[in-house]
């Protein structure tokens, strides 16, 4: 069976679906016998997805959108 280090080294690839079937099965097998790695997997998944959602919440503020529109129109006028 693979050790914790080998398991956790491959965790991102495991979750991103980048591992081949054999490597993925090795991790599954390790998780069956290792509660600390399951806790690691769960918290790793959760922190990754919370960070991802937080980064994706950025919206362009309306005032910036307006400024950019004016800026673009101005550039076009200068050129046209």
């Amino acid at each position: 069976m693979i050790c914790c280090k080998e398991c956790l080294d491959m965790l991102s690839e495991y979750l991103d679906g980048d591992l081949d079937a054999k490597a993925s099965a090795d991790l599954d097998e390790h998780f069956q016998d290792c509660p600390p790695c399951i806790a690691f997997l769960n918290t790793f998944k959760t922190s990754t997805s919370l960070c991802r959602e937080t980064l994706r919440q950025v919206d362009v503020p309306e005032v910036v959108q307006k400024k950019m529109k004016e800026f673009i129109d101005q550039q076009k006028q200068n050129k046209g």
């Binding site: 050790c3 914790c4 280090k5 080998e6 956790l8 600390p36 790695c37 399951i38 806790a39 690691f40 769960n42 918290t43 998944k45 959760t46 919370l50």
Partner: peptide
């Protein structure tokens, strides 16, 4: 190659 940290699973109720 086994984990040394004590891991608390806080992933529930997030």
């Amino acid at each position: 190659g086994y984990q040394q940290d004590k891991i608390q699973d806080w992933s529930e109720n997030t």
